[in-house]
Simulated assay, not measured.
Amino acid sequence: MMCALTGTPGTGKSTVADELARRGHRVVHITDIVQPYARGKDPERDTQIIDTDRMADEFVPFDGFVEGHFAHLLPCDRVVVLRLRPDELAARLSARGYSPDKIRENQDAEALDVCLIETVEEYESFQIFELDATGKSPAACADTIEQFYRGEIPSSFGSIDWSAFVGVSS
């Protein structure tokens, strides 16, 4: 069974994936495989353009976790959407050197549930787990993800509401 770890940049996907790998799970980071699918850069949004359809068509599923901002576009059995309160997200992205415009774009995407909505459009409800990583350690997040992966806790999503953060500068 393959499980996607997706979410807005800065929500903790890579850190949690590294914890899962440390525990013996196979983990593939999209950043390690995306280069053949890169189609240039969008200078206006300061982001790479990726042929996600081709990547999904050519991706070979495996048992374990695939981590990345658009892992939910790959053929997975389950999907975990990591979430983070937008003010905490802004602090993380600022520490990474993101521009104020890019921070604002990602805060709004998080507040508007963009990754969750895309996931819900692609998967059945029983395949999705939304995890609020705010204030949680990577180990605690990995514990919950492992339980969902093994079917020990049910699907759960749609209860996080950060709409009050839309358009709010941090």
Score class of each variant (00 low, 15 high):
residue 82 L to Q: 12
residue 156 S to R: 14
residue 22 R to A: 09
residue 26 R to I: 03
residue 16 V to T: 05
residue 146 E to N: 00
residue 82 L to E: 12
residue 56 A to G: 00
residue 79 V to E: 14
residue 131 L to P: 09
residue 14 S to G: 12
residue 170 S to R: 06
residue 57 D to P: 00
residue 63 D to E: 08
residue 168 V to K: 15
residue 60 V to S: 02
residue 87 D to L: 03
residue 12 G to R: 03
residue 30 I to A: 04
residue 148 F to I: 09
residue 28 V to C: 02
residue 35 Q to R: 04
residue 125 S to R: 04
residue 38 A to I: 01
residue 45 R to G: 13
residue 21 A to I: 09
residue 86 P to I: 04
residue 91 A to T: 11
residue 25 H to E: 12
residue 156 S to Y: 04
residue 37 Y to G: 11
residue 130 E to A: 08
residue 143 D to M: 11
residue 83 R to D: 01
residue 25 H to V: 12
residue 47 T to W: 14
residue 41 K to L: 11
residue 121 E to T: 15
residue 147 Q to G: 02
residue 61 P to R: 00
residue 63 D to C: 07
residue 112 L to F: 08
residue 19 E to C: 15
residue 81 V to F: 00
residue 109 A to W: 01
residue 91 A to I: 14
residue 166 V to N: 08
residue 49 I to Y: 15
residue 28 V to H: 03
residue 32 D to T: 08
residue 13 K to E: 12
residue 116 L to I: 08
residue 72 H to P: 15
residue 149 Y to N: 10
residue 133 A to W: 15
residue 30 I to S: 06
residue 127 Q to C: 11
residue 20 L to Q: 06
residue 8 T to V: 06
residue 148 F to K: 10
residue 101 D to T: 15
residue 119 T to V: 00
residue 23 R to I: 00
residue 118 E to V: 14
residue 158 G to P: 03
residue 164 A to Y: 03
residue 120 V to Y: 10
residue 13 K to N: 15
residue 109 A to L: 09
residue 50 I to S: 13
residue 52 T to A: 05
residue 155 S to A: 02
residue 79 V to G: 09
residue 87 D to H: 01
residue 33 I to P: 05
residue 102 K to R: 05
residue 45 R to F: 14
residue 144 T to P: 06
residue 29 H to G: 10
residue 56 A to H: 07
residue 68 G to Y: 12
residue 87 D to Y: 01
residue 95 A to P: 01
residue 87 D to N: 05
residue 60 V to P: 01
residue 68 G to C: 14
